[in-house]
């Protein structure tokens, strides 16, 4: 499994999954933190796109849970959020996120980013 997209916004899910499928990636979608965590355990995605504001378990908590799990901590977590403030970015990075992208974003750039990360491995 290449990617896990975690976002409660159906339009973000739709656009990202459309683009990545089109580019030939293998991906799965989750709509909240708890679902994301169980899918991460089960599928071991290489990269996780994680929204911050989500019901049930929010992005910060999810990120920390993933990074604290020795089995999962190798997943590359990209926080994807509409919160544009410095403090949110810091909190995201403190929670262990590897990267931080604010909405609105360009799908093409994201694809490029994913390619670079995967080629590094």
């Amino acid at each position: 499994m290449d990617l896990l997209i975690v976002d409660d916004d159906p339009y973000i899910q739709r656009s990202l999954s459309f683009v990545f499928r089109k580019e030939g990636f293998d991906l799965e979608v989750a709509t909240n933190g708890r679902e994301a965590l169980s899918k991460t355990r089960e599928l071991r995605p290489k990269i996780i796109f994680l929204d911050l504001m989500m019901p049930k378990m929010n992005g910060f908590e999810t990120c920390r849970a993933i990074k604290e799990d020795p089995d999962l901590r190798n997943c590359y977590v990209i926080v994807l959020t509409a919160k544009g403030q410095e403090i949110d970015k810091e909190m995201g990075l403190m929670a262990g996120a590897d990267e931080y992208i604010t909405k609105p974003f360009s799908p093409k750039e994201i694809v490029r980013k994913v390619r670079t990360i995967l080629s590094r491995e």
Binding site: S15, V19, A82, G84, K103, P107
Partner: peptide
Amino acid sequence: ISGVSHELRAPLSSIRSFSEILLSY
């Protein structure tokens, strides 16, 4: 302002993503 910025980003994000998809493929 932080609320406004958050609210504006969500629809903008959709518009940007989908229009770019339509233009690219």
